[in-house]
Design a protein around this nucleic acid. Structure first.
Lengths: 214, 214
DNA sequence: TTTGACTTAGAACGTCTGTTCCTGCTATAA
DNA sequence: TTATAGCAGGAACAGACGTTCTAAGTCAAA
């Protein structure tokens, strides 16, 4: 599903812009005119091809029956569907999606915009249970959006599972020069935690956003 | 632009759900069938009426040429554009939009989904500056979405301007039986504030959502 | 070269769809 | 009562639209 002819690509982009401008999909003849294709059958042929490749779906016998496919939960209008994988509790590791695609095992799905989650992909969300993360200024019931991220950069706010303490916590991550890991609470009045053995820190994901609905 | 017949309302909601399901608008006959209208001219008549009232726009002679109007920043696909009116600081009253419509004076616009902001209308957003609202578990840089709301119910999380203390704060609002107003911090370890003179409390809005991007 | 798969063109068919015209009903005001 | 406006139903027309059929061009493999 990789190779697309120039013609097919121009058809696809035209449909996108057309829907954006008009609010409804174009007809076969409108596509043909825009992409300088004289025959409706050629447009039809390429549309069928695009459908077979999964770029769009068509409703037979229906005028303007074209719907653009939504790739990886990203709808064409900038909405991102993020699966809520469950609850995050201090006393347990966070439930992380097992595979990269599919919403299996997710309780529900929350829709967010790119304005909130940025350009991340493979996102998942967790609802915080209990007020054990109050020191990270995260309340009971808050929803945190995570990106599975194994190469964490210094300063990232991450959800980590501390194997020896058997505790999940949200802290800013810093790799110190002396090999230790410093976990800095968001609340500036609280003291950081220093971890001697980096093996005891399992990063579950980087926090992309926190959403609270009082 | 207020009065809508039952028929017109059912047409409108059908168009909404149809677009949501199919990705393209319905035809006149599909509307008629769904709303049990036998004649296409009646549908056409009501569509023209709805267009005249501003609820939708039509493209003449175009099949499925219906586009739902976007009211108060609410796009047809469930995205809500919320103007960010500025920053909210503890030492100043929150900047509230002067009129009910238009984004005049807004620094920028943030797009959110209905999943986040619910069904509210006339929403506006403010970015929190400083960590003075740390007791409400709201951090520097957080964005709070507010609904201008003058009839506040007990338990609502509201942004209030205390005229005598000259301070903006976020608290849960309770009207006590003895006439006093109790402002309860979100942090359960903190003590509530009791206001004797209700006149000194100006409710700027009800907090719909809080969004944090670390 | 021949073969076959893929792509493009053109035309015709039948249905879908927006529009229009005519008719009738109901409610309000004169 | 009549007049007017708003609303609803039915039928028919013309054009739009998806589909299908035939034919031909392109290109790589045999």
């Amino acid at each position: 599903m990789a190779k697309l002819s120039d013609r097919q690509r121009s058809i696809l982009t035209f449909i996108e812009t057309f829907i954006g401008e008009n609010g409804y999909p174009p007809t076969i003849r409108e596509i043909g005119e825009a992409c300088s294709i004289s025959s409706t059958s050629v447009v039809n042929y390429n549309l069928n091809k695009l459908e077979r490749e999964g770029y769009l779906s068509r409703d037979n016998k229906v005028s303007r029956g074209i719907k653009l496919a939504e790739e990886n939960g990203d709808t064409p209008d900038g909405i991102v569907r993020v699966p809520v994988m469950g609850r995050i509790v201090a006393s347990e590791p966070a439930p992380v999606p097992s595979s990269d695609f599919g919403y299996f095992g997710s309780d529900e799905i929350i829709e967010l915009t790119r304005d909130v989650v940025g350009t991340g992909s493979n996102l998942f969300a967790l609802q915080v249970q209990g007020d054990s993360m109050i020191d990270a200024m995260i309340d009971d019931g808050d929803i945190i959006v995570l990106q599975p991220h194994h190469d964490v950069r210094n300063g990232d706010l991450v959800a980590v599972w501390l194997t020896d303490k058997e505790e999940t916590t949200l802290k800013r991550f810093f790799q110190e020069k002396d090999g230790r890991i410093r976990l800095q609470p968001a609340n500036p009045h609280m003291q950081p935690i220093y971890i001697e053995d980096a093996q005891t820190v399992e990063v579950q994901g980087r926090v992309i956003a926190v959403v609270r609905q009082p």
